[in-house]
Design a protein around this nucleic acid. Sequence first.
DNA 1: TGTACATCAGTGAACGCGCGTTCACTGATGTAC
DNA 2: TGTACATCAGTGAACGCGCGTTCACTGATGTAC
Lengths: 226, 226
Amino acid sequence: VNIMSNARTRQRNPRGSGQLLRAEIVEAALRVIDAGGVEAVSLRSVAREAGISAPSIYDHFADIDAVLRAVLDAVLAQVTEEIGKVVAANPDPVVTMLEGASAWVSFAERYPHRYAVMHNYQLLTTEQADHGAGPDQGRPFDICVAALNECIAAGRSASTDPFNDSVAIWAGLHGYASLLSVGRRFPWPDRADTLRRIIYGLAKITDPVDLSRTGRRAVGSGRRRS
Amino acid sequence: VNIMSNARTRQRNPRGSGQLLRAEIVEAALRVIDAGGVEAVSLRSVAREAGISAPSIYDHFADIDAVLRAVLDAVLAQVTEEIGKVVAANPDPVVTMLEGASAWVSFAERYPHRYAVMHNYQLLTTEQADHGAGPDQGRPFDICVAALNECIAAGRSASTDPFNDSVAIWAGLHGYASLLSVGRRFPWPDRADTLRRIIYGLAKITDPVDLSRTGRRAVGSGRRRS
DNA sequence: TGTACATCAGTGAACGCGCGTTCACTGATGTAC
DNA sequence: TGTACATCAGTGAACGCGCGTTCACTGATGTAC
C-alpha cells in the first residue's frame, strides 16, 4: 500500500506555496483508493501516504469527506477527458458511440476503485449530484445523448426517443463496467462483442460498423434482423 | 438505527436451542444493513441490534465476515425466490422476461443496501462467486438465459446467441437497478418504459407485448423498426 | 547592511471513541445416581 | 424423591489498535526598519 508513498522524502513546500499540499493530498488519496478502495481511506492513511502529519490536512480540507469530494472531482475530470478524447477523434457517430462506450468500460477496468468512488452517492455534494459535474448524469451522459442524436441525424439509428434510449444505454454501460470492475469470475464473452450488443441493441443502430476492418465500413452481417 | 432492536427484551434461548441465536444474528445484521448499509456492520453493532453481548457471536461465527456471508446467502435466497415466483406465474416468455426484470429492479429499490451487499465481491466465498449461489451468475442469470431461450423457441426473439445476449441483459438490468438503488436524483423515465427498452433491445424481441392491456396481447406499436 | 519580528507550513502529543478479540466467569437447566 | 454435577447459553471486563480531532509548539523564511 505504501509503495508509492513519499513519506520521509517529502520537503516542506516553500513559503507562499502552501496550496501545493492540497493537490498532494488529493493525489495521495487517489493512491490509497487505487490500492485499497474507498474503505482504506482515512484522514490518517491519506496523511501517511502523503508523507505529512494528520493535522496538516485540516489546513486544506474541513474533513476527510471534503478530501473525497475533491478526489471525486478529479476522477470525473479524468473520465470525462478520456471519453472526450475518443469522441473527438471519431467523425463516424456509430464508431463514436462504440469507442466512447469502450473508453468508459476501460476506465472502470483500469481504475475499479475510482469507478466505485464515482458511483458512491453518499460522497456527492448536491451540486455534484445534480448538475454537470455528476458522473453520468452530467457530461458523460450528455455526450451519450449527443452521440445518439448524431446517429439519428445520420440515419444510422431507429431511435425516436434519444433521451430515454440514452438512459437505457447508460444503464447497460454502467452495469457492464460495474460487473467487470469488481473482477467477478465469469466466462465473459469478448468485450467488443458485448459492447456491440449493448450499443446496437439499445441505440437501435440500423447500420452496424465492423471495427475489425481498418476501413470502418458498414457491413450487413453485424446483426441479423428477422 | 436501533428501532427494531430486541435489545433488553431478549430471553436466553432454552437448553438445546442455542442454534436459534445464529438465525437471530443474521436477522440483526440484515436490519443493520437495511438501516445503514454494509459499512454500519460491525461485530459490536450486530450484537447490539441482536440484544446480546459481542463475544456471543463467536459461538456461532468465526468472525464478522462469516456473518456477512450468511447474510449474503439469505439475500440471494430472497431475490431468487422473488424472481422465481414471478417467472413461474407467467406462461408468456416475453412477459416473463419483463416481469422478471421488473422484480429484480424492484428488489434493488426496496432493499438498496442488500442489493449493494449482493454485489460486494469482497464478501463472496469462492463457492458463492463461482457456482450456483452467485448472485447473478447463478440462478438469476440462468433464469434469464432460460427465459430468452423460451422467447427464441416461441419465435418472439431474433437472438442467435442467447448466452451472449443474456450477458448484455444482465449488464443492463444490473446497471439500471444499481443506478436506481443509489437514489440519484435524475429525471427518470417511466420504469416500465425503460425496462421495455432494455429487454426488447437486448433480447431482440420481435413481438412486443403491451403490459398495460390486461389481455397481454401482442401489439405492433411497441418499437418502431426501420 | 544588520537584525528583530511576523508569518508560513507544518509537527507532536494527547484526548476519547468504537472496534475486534481474549478470558475467566455465571447462572439456569437438564441428568445421573 | 432428592441432590450433586455437567452442560449450555451466554456475560463482563479488559487488552491493544487505529481513528478523528484539539492544541500548543517549532523552525525556516521573508520583511520592516
